[in-house]
Write a protein that binds this DNA or RNA. Structure first.
Lengths: 231, 231
DNA sequence: AAGTGGTCTAGACCACCTT
DNA sequence: AGGTGGTCTAGACCACTTG
Protein backbone atom coordinates (compact mmCIF):
# COMPACT_ATOMS: atom_id res chain seq x y z
CA UNK A 1 0.00 0.00 0.00
CA UNK A 2 1.45 3.33 -1.00
CA UNK A 3 0.27 6.22 1.13
CA UNK A 4 0.84 9.91 0.66
CA UNK A 5 3.89 9.74 2.90
CA UNK A 6 5.53 7.20 0.63
CA UNK A 7 4.88 9.42 -2.36
CA UNK A 8 6.16 12.47 -0.52
CA UNK A 9 9.34 10.66 0.49
CA UNK A 10 9.87 9.37 -3.03
CA UNK A 11 9.62 12.88 -4.45
CA UNK A 12 11.87 14.17 -1.69
CA UNK A 13 14.48 11.56 -2.56
CA UNK A 14 14.37 12.64 -6.19
CA UNK A 15 14.91 16.23 -5.21
CA UNK A 16 17.78 15.42 -2.88
CA UNK A 17 19.49 13.13 -5.34
CA UNK A 18 19.53 15.84 -7.97
CA UNK A 19 17.22 13.91 -10.22
CA UNK A 20 14.89 16.89 -9.77
CA UNK A 21 17.28 19.85 -9.55
CA UNK A 22 16.29 23.34 -8.35
CA UNK A 23 14.00 24.98 -10.86
CA UNK A 24 12.89 21.73 -12.41
CA UNK A 25 9.21 21.17 -12.94
CA UNK A 26 7.55 18.20 -11.32
CA UNK A 27 5.21 16.17 -13.48
CA UNK A 28 1.62 17.31 -13.16
CA UNK A 29 -0.46 15.84 -10.38
CA UNK A 30 -2.41 13.86 -12.94
CA UNK A 31 0.75 12.32 -14.35
CA UNK A 32 2.14 11.57 -10.91
CA UNK A 33 -1.14 9.97 -9.90
CA UNK A 34 -0.90 7.72 -12.90
CA UNK A 35 2.74 6.92 -12.17
CA UNK A 36 2.09 5.95 -8.57
CA UNK A 37 -1.27 4.40 -9.27
CA UNK A 38 -3.19 6.53 -6.80
CA UNK A 39 -5.83 9.22 -6.90
CA UNK A 40 -4.80 12.76 -7.66
CA UNK A 41 -5.82 13.91 -4.17
CA UNK A 42 -3.23 11.60 -2.69
CA UNK A 43 -0.46 13.05 -4.82
CA UNK A 44 -1.70 16.53 -4.00
CA UNK A 45 -1.53 15.78 -0.30
CA UNK A 46 2.05 14.60 -0.68
CA UNK A 47 3.10 17.70 -2.57
CA UNK A 48 1.32 19.89 -0.03
CA UNK A 49 3.73 18.59 2.60
CA UNK A 50 6.72 19.48 0.46
CA UNK A 51 5.29 22.92 -0.26
CA UNK A 52 4.68 23.52 3.44
CA UNK A 53 8.37 22.85 4.01
CA UNK A 54 9.27 25.32 1.28
CA UNK A 55 10.87 22.68 -0.92
CA UNK A 56 8.62 23.22 -3.92
CA UNK A 57 6.57 26.08 -5.28
CA UNK A 58 3.08 25.43 -6.56
CA UNK A 59 1.41 27.76 -9.03
CA UNK A 60 -1.75 27.20 -10.95
CA UNK A 61 -1.22 26.61 -14.60
CA UNK A 62 2.55 26.91 -14.18
CA UNK A 63 2.75 23.70 -12.20
CA UNK A 64 4.99 22.67 -9.33
CA UNK A 65 8.71 23.41 -9.45
CA UNK A 66 11.58 22.62 -7.13
CA UNK A 67 12.39 25.75 -5.15
CA UNK A 68 15.57 27.50 -6.27
CA UNK A 69 16.03 29.36 -3.01
CA UNK A 70 14.30 27.16 -0.49
CA UNK A 71 13.04 29.23 2.37
CA UNK A 72 14.11 27.30 5.37
CA UNK A 73 11.20 27.34 7.72
CA UNK A 74 11.24 26.04 11.21
CA UNK A 75 8.42 25.75 13.63
CA UNK A 76 9.26 26.88 17.11
CA UNK A 77 7.31 25.81 20.13
CA UNK A 78 7.33 28.32 22.91
CA UNK A 79 7.09 26.52 26.19
CA UNK A 80 6.66 27.66 29.74
CA UNK A 81 9.77 27.54 31.88
CA UNK A 82 8.13 25.02 34.21
CA UNK A 83 7.31 22.72 31.35
CA UNK A 84 10.79 22.97 29.90
CA UNK A 85 12.48 22.30 33.21
CA UNK A 86 10.24 19.36 34.05
CA UNK A 87 10.88 17.91 30.62
CA UNK A 88 14.60 17.95 31.43
CA UNK A 89 13.92 15.89 34.52
CA UNK A 90 14.82 18.67 36.91
CA UNK A 91 12.82 19.98 39.83
CA UNK A 92 10.97 23.18 38.99
CA UNK A 93 10.44 25.89 41.56
CA UNK A 94 9.01 29.35 41.23
CA UNK A 95 9.71 32.48 43.18
CA UNK A 96 8.15 35.95 43.16
CA UNK A 97 10.93 38.51 43.50
CA UNK A 98 8.98 41.76 43.25
CA UNK A 99 5.25 42.46 43.02
CA UNK A 100 5.71 46.10 42.07
CA UNK A 101 8.20 45.84 39.27
CA UNK A 102 8.73 49.10 37.37
CA UNK A 103 6.95 49.56 34.08
CA UNK A 104 8.95 50.76 31.07
CA UNK A 105 7.40 53.36 28.82
CA UNK A 106 6.86 51.12 25.84
CA UNK A 107 5.01 48.62 28.02
CA UNK A 108 2.79 51.27 29.57
CA UNK A 109 1.96 52.58 26.13
CA UNK A 110 1.11 49.14 24.81
CA UNK A 111 -0.81 47.80 27.79
CA UNK A 112 -2.36 50.74 29.61
CA UNK A 113 -3.01 50.18 33.34
CA UNK A 114 -0.64 47.45 34.33
CA UNK A 115 0.70 45.30 37.13
CA UNK A 116 4.44 44.69 37.07
CA UNK A 117 6.04 41.54 38.43
CA UNK A 118 9.55 40.15 38.65
CA UNK A 119 9.70 36.39 38.90
CA UNK A 120 12.33 33.69 38.88
CA UNK A 121 12.18 30.13 37.60
CA UNK A 122 14.63 27.65 39.07
CA UNK A 123 15.77 24.21 38.00
CA UNK A 124 16.97 22.00 40.85
CA UNK A 125 17.25 25.16 42.89
CA UNK A 126 19.55 27.05 40.54
CA UNK A 127 18.36 30.12 38.62
CA UNK A 128 17.13 29.25 35.15
CA UNK A 129 15.24 32.27 33.95
CA UNK A 130 14.21 35.67 35.27
CA UNK A 131 10.85 36.89 34.05
CA UNK A 132 9.68 40.47 33.89
CA UNK A 133 5.90 40.31 33.56
CA UNK A 134 3.42 43.07 32.99
CA UNK A 135 -0.30 42.36 33.00
CA UNK A 136 -3.11 44.65 31.95
CA UNK A 137 -5.11 45.04 35.16
CA UNK A 138 -8.38 44.71 33.26
CA UNK A 139 -7.63 41.00 33.23
CA UNK A 140 -7.15 40.91 37.01
CA UNK A 141 -10.73 41.41 38.23
CA UNK A 142 -10.48 41.39 42.03
CA UNK A 143 -6.86 42.28 42.51
CA UNK A 144 -5.68 39.53 44.79
CA UNK A 145 -2.23 40.80 45.73
CA UNK A 146 -0.99 37.36 46.73
CA UNK A 147 -2.18 35.55 43.65
CA UNK A 148 1.24 35.30 42.09
CA UNK A 149 3.10 34.60 45.31
CA UNK A 150 3.22 30.90 44.54
CA UNK A 151 1.57 30.75 41.12
CA UNK A 152 3.59 31.65 38.04
CA UNK A 153 1.69 34.23 36.00
CA UNK A 154 2.25 32.50 32.67
CA UNK A 155 0.21 29.34 33.25
CA UNK A 156 -2.40 31.32 35.19
CA UNK A 157 -2.92 33.65 32.26
CA UNK A 158 -3.02 30.84 29.73
CA UNK A 159 -5.91 29.31 31.60
CA UNK A 160 -7.70 32.61 31.94
CA UNK A 161 -7.07 33.95 28.44
CA UNK A 162 -6.63 30.73 26.57
CA UNK A 163 -6.20 31.67 22.96
CA UNK A 164 -4.81 34.82 21.50
CA UNK A 165 -2.50 36.20 18.92
CA UNK A 166 1.07 36.58 20.02
CA UNK A 167 4.22 38.34 18.93
CA UNK A 168 7.67 37.08 19.84
CA UNK A 169 10.90 39.01 19.80
CA UNK A 170 14.29 37.53 20.53
CA UNK A 171 17.40 39.58 21.01
CA UNK A 172 20.74 39.74 22.75
CA UNK A 173 20.92 42.33 25.51
CA UNK A 174 23.22 43.34 28.30
CA UNK A 175 21.64 42.20 31.52
CA UNK A 176 21.07 45.14 33.86
CA UNK A 177 22.30 44.73 37.42
CA UNK A 178 18.79 44.17 38.77
CA UNK A 179 18.36 41.17 36.49
CA UNK A 180 21.92 39.92 36.39
CA UNK A 181 22.22 39.62 40.14
CA UNK A 182 19.41 37.08 40.26
CA UNK A 183 21.08 34.98 37.56
CA UNK A 184 24.44 35.10 39.30
CA UNK A 185 25.93 37.35 36.65
CA UNK A 186 27.63 40.70 36.67
CA UNK A 187 25.81 43.55 35.04
CA UNK A 188 26.38 43.92 31.31
CA UNK A 189 26.77 40.20 30.60
CA UNK A 190 25.21 39.21 27.28
CA UNK A 191 21.89 37.55 27.91
CA UNK A 192 19.42 35.93 25.59
CA UNK A 193 16.10 37.70 25.97
CA UNK A 194 12.73 36.63 24.66
CA UNK A 195 9.85 39.05 24.76
CA UNK A 196 6.33 37.82 24.28
CA UNK A 197 3.27 40.01 23.84
CA UNK A 198 -0.21 38.53 23.64
CA UNK A 199 -3.58 39.90 22.65
CA UNK A 200 -7.10 38.68 23.12
CA UNK A 201 -9.35 39.76 20.26
CA UNK A 202 -7.22 42.84 19.65
CA UNK A 203 -6.99 43.77 23.33
CA UNK A 204 -3.48 43.71 24.78
CA UNK A 205 -3.24 41.32 27.71
CA UNK A 206 0.32 40.87 28.85
CA UNK A 207 3.95 41.35 27.99
CA UNK A 208 6.75 39.20 29.35
CA UNK A 209 10.48 39.59 29.01
CA UNK A 210 12.35 36.37 29.72
CA UNK A 211 16.01 36.66 30.63
CA UNK A 212 17.72 33.33 30.17
CA UNK A 213 20.55 31.84 32.11
CA UNK A 214 24.05 32.27 30.77
CA UNK A 215 24.89 29.89 27.95
CA UNK A 216 21.28 29.43 26.97
CA UNK A 217 20.82 28.38 23.37
CA UNK A 218 17.66 28.22 21.37
CA UNK A 219 18.05 25.39 18.91
CA UNK A 220 15.92 23.81 16.30
CA UNK A 221 16.23 21.28 13.64
CA UNK A 222 14.99 21.26 10.10
CA UNK A 223 14.43 17.93 8.43
CA UNK A 224 12.32 18.17 5.31
CA UNK A 225 9.76 15.48 4.93
CA UNK A 226 9.40 14.70 8.57
CA UNK A 227 6.34 16.85 8.43
CA UNK A 228 6.60 20.14 10.21
CA UNK A 229 9.69 21.13 12.08
CA UNK A 230 10.45 20.96 15.72
CA UNK A 231 12.13 23.30 18.09
CA UNK B 1 -20.40 28.92 -0.54
CA UNK B 2 -18.81 27.68 2.65
CA UNK B 3 -15.23 26.54 2.26
CA UNK B 4 -13.01 24.86 4.79
CA UNK B 5 -11.61 28.23 5.76
CA UNK B 6 -15.04 29.48 6.74
CA UNK B 7 -15.61 26.41 8.86
CA UNK B 8 -12.18 26.74 10.44
CA UNK B 9 -12.80 30.38 11.26
CA UNK B 10 -16.23 29.61 12.67
CA UNK B 11 -14.79 27.00 14.99
CA UNK B 12 -11.95 29.34 15.90
CA UNK B 13 -14.45 32.03 16.82
CA UNK B 14 -16.31 29.59 19.07
CA UNK B 15 -13.09 28.68 20.81
CA UNK B 16 -12.05 32.28 21.29
CA UNK B 17 -15.44 33.39 22.50
CA UNK B 18 -15.44 30.76 25.21
CA UNK B 19 -18.35 28.96 23.65
CA UNK B 20 -15.91 26.05 23.32
CA UNK B 21 -13.74 26.38 26.44
CA UNK B 22 -10.43 24.58 26.96
CA UNK B 23 -11.01 20.88 27.43
CA UNK B 24 -14.38 20.91 25.70
CA UNK B 25 -15.05 18.30 23.07
CA UNK B 26 -15.93 19.40 19.57
CA UNK B 27 -18.82 17.63 17.91
CA UNK B 28 -17.70 14.71 15.81
CA UNK B 29 -16.70 15.39 12.24
CA UNK B 30 -19.85 13.69 11.06
CA UNK B 31 -22.04 15.97 13.18
CA UNK B 32 -20.13 19.07 12.12
CA UNK B 33 -20.43 18.05 8.49
CA UNK B 34 -24.19 17.81 8.94
CA UNK B 35 -24.32 21.14 10.76
CA UNK B 36 -22.40 23.00 8.07
CA UNK B 37 -23.90 21.04 5.22
CA UNK B 38 -20.59 19.90 3.78
CA UNK B 39 -18.72 16.64 3.34
CA UNK B 40 -16.81 15.23 6.25
CA UNK B 41 -13.50 15.71 4.46
CA UNK B 42 -14.11 19.45 4.40
CA UNK B 43 -14.69 19.58 8.13
CA UNK B 44 -11.65 17.41 8.66
CA UNK B 45 -9.53 19.79 6.60
CA UNK B 46 -10.73 22.71 8.72
CA UNK B 47 -9.92 20.94 11.97
CA UNK B 48 -6.54 19.89 10.62
CA UNK B 49 -5.62 23.56 10.38
CA UNK B 50 -6.61 24.15 13.98
CA UNK B 51 -4.69 21.08 15.10
CA UNK B 52 -1.59 22.19 13.19
CA UNK B 53 -1.72 25.44 15.16
CA UNK B 54 -2.00 23.50 18.40
CA UNK B 55 -5.45 24.80 19.26
CA UNK B 56 -7.15 21.44 19.38
CA UNK B 57 -6.08 17.88 20.05
CA UNK B 58 -7.38 15.10 17.86
CA UNK B 59 -7.47 11.52 19.07
CA UNK B 60 -9.15 8.58 17.48
CA UNK B 61 -12.21 7.41 19.28
CA UNK B 62 -11.79 10.13 21.93
CA UNK B 63 -12.61 12.85 19.43
CA UNK B 64 -11.31 16.39 19.12
CA UNK B 65 -10.98 18.60 22.18
CA UNK B 66 -9.94 22.18 22.70
CA UNK B 67 -6.37 22.20 23.94
CA UNK B 68 -6.04 23.03 27.65
CA UNK B 69 -2.42 24.09 27.37
CA UNK B 70 -2.14 25.27 23.82
CA UNK B 71 1.41 24.88 22.62
CA UNK B 72 2.16 28.22 21.14
CA UNK B 73 3.89 27.53 17.90
CA UNK B 74 5.37 30.02 15.56
CA UNK B 75 6.91 29.54 12.19
CA UNK B 76 10.31 31.08 11.60
CA UNK B 77 11.75 31.71 8.20
CA UNK B 78 15.51 31.78 8.00
CA UNK B 79 16.54 34.07 5.18
CA UNK B 80 19.82 35.02 3.60
CA UNK B 81 21.20 38.41 4.57
CA UNK B 82 21.00 39.65 0.99
CA UNK B 83 17.35 38.68 0.73
CA UNK B 84 16.51 40.31 4.04
CA UNK B 85 18.27 43.54 3.18
CA UNK B 86 16.75 43.77 -0.27
CA UNK B 87 13.32 43.15 1.21
CA UNK B 88 13.87 46.18 3.42
CA UNK B 89 14.50 48.28 0.34
CA UNK B 90 18.15 48.83 1.11
CA UNK B 91 21.12 48.28 -1.13
CA UNK B 92 22.91 45.04 -0.43
CA UNK B 93 26.63 44.70 -0.77
CA UNK B 94 28.98 41.89 0.11
CA UNK B 95 32.58 41.92 1.16
CA UNK B 96 35.12 39.17 1.82
CA UNK B 97 37.17 40.12 4.85
CA UNK B 98 39.40 37.08 5.23
CA UNK B 99 39.83 33.99 3.10
CA UNK B 100 41.84 32.10 5.71
CA UNK B 101 39.67 32.52 8.76
CA UNK B 102 40.75 30.36 11.70
CA UNK B 103 38.83 27.17 12.37
CA UNK B 104 37.63 26.46 15.90
CA UNK B 105 38.01 22.96 17.23
CA UNK B 106 34.35 22.08 17.27
CA UNK B 107 34.05 23.09 13.63
CA UNK B 108 37.08 21.07 12.59
CA UNK B 109 35.67 18.08 14.43
CA UNK B 110 32.28 18.41 12.78
CA UNK B 111 33.39 19.22 9.25
CA UNK B 112 36.81 17.68 8.69
CA UNK B 113 38.99 19.44 6.05
CA UNK B 114 37.64 22.90 5.86
CA UNK B 115 37.96 26.33 4.29
CA UNK B 116 37.40 29.25 6.66
CA UNK B 117 36.02 32.59 5.51
CA UNK B 118 35.09 35.84 7.18
CA UNK B 119 32.51 37.86 5.28
CA UNK B 120 30.47 40.98 5.79
CA UNK B 121 27.02 41.87 4.57
CA UNK B 122 26.18 45.57 4.31
CA UNK B 123 22.92 47.44 3.96
CA UNK B 124 23.23 50.81 2.27
CA UNK B 125 26.93 50.61 2.98
CA UNK B 126 26.67 50.10 6.72
CA UNK B 127 27.61 46.82 8.38
CA UNK B 128 24.61 44.54 8.86
CA UNK B 129 26.02 41.14 9.63
CA UNK B 130 29.42 39.50 9.94
CA UNK B 131 29.54 35.91 8.82
CA UNK B 132 32.05 33.31 9.86
CA UNK B 133 31.78 30.53 7.29
CA UNK B 134 33.44 27.17 7.21
CA UNK B 135 32.99 24.87 4.25
CA UNK B 136 33.99 21.25 3.94
CA UNK B 137 36.49 21.31 1.11
CA UNK B 138 35.00 18.17 -0.39
CA UNK B 139 32.26 20.45 -1.67
CA UNK B 140 34.79 22.78 -3.32
CA UNK B 141 36.03 20.62 -6.20
CA UNK B 142 38.57 22.78 -8.02
CA UNK B 143 39.56 25.19 -5.29
CA UNK B 144 39.08 28.52 -7.02
CA UNK B 145 40.59 30.84 -4.44
CA UNK B 146 38.74 33.88 -5.75
CA UNK B 147 35.34 32.27 -5.90
CA UNK B 148 34.04 34.03 -2.82
CA UNK B 149 35.72 37.34 -3.50
CA UNK B 150 32.48 38.78 -4.84
CA UNK B 151 30.05 35.89 -4.34
CA UNK B 152 28.55 35.30 -0.89
CA UNK B 153 29.09 31.66 0.09
CA UNK B 154 25.53 31.16 1.33
CA UNK B 155 23.67 31.50 -1.96
CA UNK B 156 26.47 29.74 -3.81
CA UNK B 157 26.19 26.73 -1.53
CA UNK B 158 22.41 26.68 -1.70
CA UNK B 159 22.64 26.31 -5.43
CA UNK B 160 25.32 23.66 -5.21
CA UNK B 161 23.86 21.69 -2.32
CA UNK B 162 20.24 22.52 -2.76
CA UNK B 163 18.37 20.65 -0.09
CA UNK B 164 19.66 19.37 3.16
CA UNK B 165 18.91 18.95 6.79
CA UNK B 166 19.87 21.87 8.95
CA UNK B 167 20.34 22.70 12.59
CA UNK B 168 19.96 26.22 13.89
CA UNK B 169 21.25 27.57 17.16
CA UNK B 170 20.59 31.08 18.40
CA UNK B 171 22.32 32.59 21.36
CA UNK B 172 23.58 35.80 22.89
CA UNK B 173 27.34 36.11 22.92
CA UNK B 174 29.97 38.71 23.63
CA UNK B 175 31.42 39.78 20.31
CA UNK B 176 35.19 39.17 20.21
CA UNK B 177 37.32 42.07 19.06
CA UNK B 178 37.92 40.56 15.63
CA UNK B 179 34.19 40.48 14.98
CA UNK B 180 33.14 43.57 16.89
CA UNK B 181 35.51 45.86 15.06
CA UNK B 182 33.80 45.13 11.75
CA UNK B 183 30.39 45.92 13.24
CA UNK B 184 31.60 49.16 14.76
CA UNK B 185 31.37 47.76 18.29
CA UNK B 186 33.78 47.42 21.12
CA UNK B 187 34.75 43.91 22.11
CA UNK B 188 32.42 42.24 24.60
CA UNK B 189 29.24 43.91 23.35
CA UNK B 190 26.25 41.54 23.43
CA UNK B 191 25.54 40.29 19.96
CA UNK B 192 22.81 38.09 18.61
CA UNK B 193 24.42 35.08 16.99
CA UNK B 194 22.83 32.51 14.76
CA UNK B 195 24.73 29.37 13.91
CA UNK B 196 23.57 27.18 11.08
CA UNK B 197 24.95 23.74 10.25
CA UNK B 198 23.79 21.86 7.19
CA UNK B 199 24.16 18.31 6.03
CA UNK B 200 23.63 16.62 2.71
CA UNK B 201 22.52 13.03 3.10
CA UNK B 202 24.31 12.75 6.43
CA UNK B 203 27.52 14.40 5.19
CA UNK B 204 28.41 17.69 6.89
CA UNK B 205 28.68 20.51 4.36
CA UNK B 206 29.05 23.85 6.06
CA UNK B 207 28.76 25.76 9.29
CA UNK B 208 28.07 29.48 9.49
CA UNK B 209 28.06 31.77 12.47
CA UNK B 210 26.15 34.97 11.81
CA UNK B 211 26.91 37.93 14.05
CA UNK B 212 24.15 40.48 13.81
CA UNK B 213 24.39 44.22 14.06
CA UNK B 214 23.66 45.81 17.44
CA UNK B 215 19.99 46.08 18.19
CA UNK B 216 19.06 43.21 15.90
CA UNK B 217 15.81 41.53 16.82
CA UNK B 218 14.41 38.30 15.54
CA UNK B 219 10.65 38.62 15.57
CA UNK B 220 7.77 36.45 14.63
CA UNK B 221 4.07 36.47 14.85
CA UNK B 222 1.58 33.82 15.78
CA UNK B 223 -1.94 34.16 14.46
CA UNK B 224 -3.99 31.02 14.75
CA UNK B 225 -6.08 30.24 11.73
CA UNK B 226 -3.71 31.66 9.20
CA UNK B 227 -3.31 28.10 8.13
CA UNK B 228 -0.20 26.00 8.40
CA UNK B 229 -1.08 22.81 6.67
CA UNK B 230 -1.11 23.34 2.94
CA UNK B 231 1.41 25.53 1.20
C1' DA C 1 -7.80 28.87 -24.75
C1' DA C 2 -6.15 25.45 -22.11
C1' DG C 3 -3.95 23.12 -18.50
C1' DT C 4 -2.57 23.46 -13.84
C1' DG C 5 -3.34 23.36 -8.92
C1' DG C 6 -7.28 24.19 -5.24
C1' DT C 7 -11.15 22.52 -3.42
C1' DC C 8 -15.20 19.83 -2.63
C1' DT C 9 -18.17 15.53 -2.69
C1' DA C 10 -20.03 10.98 -1.35
C1' DG C 11 -18.54 6.99 -0.15
C1' DA C 12 -15.48 3.62 1.73
C1' DC C 13 -12.19 1.12 4.61
C1' DC C 14 -9.02 1.11 8.26
C1' DA C 15 -6.36 1.96 12.78
C1' DC C 16 -6.89 3.15 17.01
C1' DC C 17 -8.68 3.73 21.38
C1' DT C 18 -12.21 4.24 24.86
C1' DT C 19 -15.94 2.00 27.01
C1' DA D 1 -17.82 -3.55 20.46
C1' DG D 2 -18.35 0.60 18.60
C1' DG D 3 -17.34 5.22 17.36
C1' DT D 4 -13.74 8.34 16.27
C1' DG D 5 -10.26 10.40 13.35
C1' DG D 6 -6.92 9.11 9.21
C1' DT D 7 -6.71 8.16 4.73
C1' DC D 8 -7.93 7.04 0.09
C1' DT D 9 -10.91 7.06 -4.22
C1' DA D 10 -13.11 8.65 -8.50
C1' DG D 11 -15.10 12.28 -10.10
C1' DA D 12 -16.25 17.03 -10.55
C1' DC D 13 -16.06 22.05 -10.87
C1' DC D 14 -13.54 26.18 -10.21
C1' DA D 15 -9.70 29.84 -10.08
C1' DC D 16 -5.87 31.17 -11.78
C1' DT D 17 -2.33 32.22 -15.01
C1' DT D 18 0.46 31.24 -18.66
C1' DG D 19 1.21 30.72 -23.65
Amino acid sequence: MTGFRDIRDTLLARIRSGSLPPGAALPSEIDLAAEFGVARATVSRAIADLAADGLVDRRRRAGTTVSRAPVRKAQVEIVQAGTEISALGQAYTYQLLDSAHPVPDHVATALGPVLGLLCMHLADGTPWQVEERWINTNWLPDGDPDRFQATPPGPWLIEKVPLTDARFVFEAAAAPDAIASHLGLTGGTPSFVGERATWQAGQPVTIARLWHRPGYQMTFQHSPGSGALTG
